[in-house]
Design a protein around this nucleic acid. Structure first.
Length: 578
RNA sequence: GCCCUCGUAGCUCAGUGGAUAGAGCGUCUGCCUCCGGAGCAGAAGGCCACAGGUUCGAAUCCUGUCGAGGGCACCA
């Protein structure tokens, strides 16, 4: 693991510990065939130091020594380094390390100098990764779960990019199949009703009011000419009109939350013949599996032997009637992804699709890309309003859509709440809380810290603290002194703030590796808390102490940059004023 | 019935095999002559669902039981 740009604190410590252990081995104090990569962590209890490593426990067995004995040897070799204030051996063999104020102060320069690149890593090494998410059927409005998956996918994409991957966002459009037909029939039925015709609404049709809206628009645009048209022609025409309208709507709503896709991939294109008239993508994918010996025929259908790759049962790809299953198209779709050169593919699916994971992994393995697909299961969202469950009826189509929610709580609160829970947890979303502008609402807590910093900067620049016309970046740049005496920052709240800032690159790494954007919101709240504590105890702008003011302004601005950066990864705005 | 995910403070949830298991909300008590009180400090609150196992060490890994949600089509 290495990081673009400067060396982070954790890298420094890891290097120190490893060097110390290697030195001990070389000197014959410890006998080890292999030096492990030491793991550093922030202890929960501050009495255990700033950082701790359990490397002595990891190696004690192989070295045939007591863990504490190994720890003592390593500790002795680290002590005395200018970045280390103290080293202690504790407990079963932990090595507790306290950083010198000097080492902590360096993170402020790192943040200031790197700006929005603070915490940027190179663990992706420029490799290409695709995140496919939302992929809602273009037959109606998105539900709230789609909104959560949109926030998840987009934030994952952001944090992966920050970790050095080359990221593409993709939306798979299921624009063929039974649902599209039902959709078309539903619109046609409403249209005929509007024309005063006596029609029976399809039993399994979509009953949402939006269907009538679409029908009404077609009627306004094209009149009643379709009422007497041949039914199949009418349905095909309506399907395309309605599809285009819904797709545009999906794009509009997602854009409203700051989620924009690079590619909208049409399922239909997988079924049309190649440009040279050759076989379709689906046919090519099946041929590939067939050549590799993974297909067989049974009872008139063509099957994929997915059980050979860990699936529960084999799956049909081509039905007895000659048509392809959805799964066949999905295999072709994934084959296409890898053909496009992605080193890794992430699919975010709703919890209702988790039964589909094994077969998809089996297919990807059969195509020769084992291990390059990660399916993330996004759990659903339960809506509450002031503690009361918001009831929805699928039958009547009455529901609170994602768009409704976005209109009511706004994109910042929506995204922040969607990301606060781990991905595999069902989410209880309280609309009343998300709208509340108080400390009960974590998104405001974090944004308030940022706005508060901006107010301090305005104050320091001699402007009114509430003057919105002040350009914060320019103000900060003008105020900061490269020679600010950072060594004055040695009180506990100041040190705590700097310690928290040193964690940021690590948070980015963990969030990217675990595909866990909820680590970002948690960190944002921790950092905001550290700042608020600092603010309460440390007066920043003090005309009687120019030097301390310069140093604290430097720390405050480093915090502003870190807050803005982490909020950027979450996809939430960092307001100058609230 | 089989498969997947989840059971952690009154509530909502963090917790990458490590030390006395954490946060927010809620409850109770304090803090504004001072840069934004949308803030800060403190108190109370736990058999990490249960039972075994793995090891120096388990909320975390394995097995079983109980409970919650979801999935089990030649649908998409």
């Amino acid at each position: 693991m290495f990081r673009a740009g400067g060396m982070s604190v954790i890298d420094l410590l890891q290097g120190l510990v490893k060097e110390a252990l290697a030195g001990a081995v070389k000197a014959g104090e410890v006998v080890l065939a292999e030096i492990p990569e030491p793991r550093l962590e922030r202890p929960r209890d501050p009495a255990h130091g700033d950082w701790a490593t359990n490397v002595a426990m990891q190696t004690a067995k192989a070295a045939r020594m007591a863990p504490r004995a190994v720890a003592e040897i390593v500790a002795r070799r680290i002590a005395g380094h200018p970045d280390i204030a103290s080293v202690e051996v504790a407990g079963a063999g932990f090595i507790n390390i306290r950083l010198s104020a000097h080492a902590l102060q360096r993170v402020l320069r790192e943040a200031r100098e790197r700006g929005t690149d603070f915490g940027r890593l190179d663990i992706g090494a420029g490799r290409r990764i695709q995140v496919e998410f939302v992929s809602a059927n273009p037959v109606g409005p998105m539900h709230v779960g789609h909104g959560r998956w949109a926030a998840l996918g987009d934030s994952m994409a952001r944090v992966l990019a920050h970790a050095g991957w080359s990221v593409q966002r993709e939306f798979y459009v299921n624009d063929r199949g039974v649902q599209m037909d039902v959709f078309a029939k539903s619109v046609a039925a409403r249209y005929l009703e509007l024309c005063g015709r006596d029609v029976e609404f399809p039993e399994e049709g979509y009953r949402g009011a939006y269907i009538t809206e679409i029908a009404r628009e077609i009627l306004a645009d094209e009149g009643e000419e379709w009422a007497d048209a041949e039914p199949s022609a009418r349905e095909e025409h309506f399907r395309e009109k309605a599809y285009a309208q819904v797709l545009a709507h999906l794009q509009h709503v997602l854009h409203g939350m700051g989620v924009d896709f690079d590619i909208w991939f049409s399922e239909r294109t997988l079924h049309i013949p190649a440009e040279d008239g050759g076989p379709s993508a689906v046919e090519r994918a099946l041929a590939r599996l067939k050549d590799a010996g993974h297909l067989y025929e049974h009872e008139g259908a063509l099957w994929f032997r997915s059980t050979a790759f860990g699936d529960d049962k084999d799956r049909v790809l081509k039905k007895a009637d000659g048509s392809y299953t959805y799964f066949a198209a999905d295999i072709a779709y994934h084959a296409d992804k890898y053909d496009r050169g992605f080193d890794r593919v992430i699919d975010i699916w709703g919890a209702d699709h988790h039964g589909y994971v094994k077969r998809m992994e089996a297919a990807v393995a059969a195509l020769g890309h084992e291990g390059k697909l990660t399916v993330v299961i996004g759990q659903l969202v339960n809506l509450f309003r002031g503690g009361e469950v918001v009831r929805m009826s699928k039958r009547t189509g009455e529901m609170v859509t994602f768009e409704d929610l976005l209109d009511e709580v706004g994109p910042d609160a929506a995204r922040y709440f969607f990301l606060r829970r781990s991905t595999d947890q069902a989410l209880d979303f309280d609309i009343a809380l998300a709208k509340e502008q108080s400390s009960d609402n974590p998104v405001y807590y974090v944004q308030y810290a940022h706005a508060r910093i901006c107010a301090i900067l305005r104050k320091a620049a001699g402007a009114d603290t509430a003057d919105t016309s002040v350009d914060i970046a320019a103000t900060a740049a003008a105020l900061m002194r490269d020679d600010a005496p950072l060594h004055l920052l040695d009180s506990e709240p100041e040190l705590a703030l700097m310690r928290k800032l040193t964690e940021f690159p690590d948070v980015v790494e963990v969030a990217a590796r675990q595909l866990a954007p909820n680590k970002l919101t948690r960190y944002a709240e921790d950092l905001a808390a550290s700042f608020h504590q600092f603010y309460t105890q440390c007066r920043v702008v003090d005309p009687d102490d120019i030097e301390l003011t310069a140093a604290r302004l430097y720390a405050v601005d480093a915090t502003r940059i870190a807050l803005a950066t982490v909020l950027g990864l979450v996809g939430v705005s960092a307001p100058d004023r609230m």
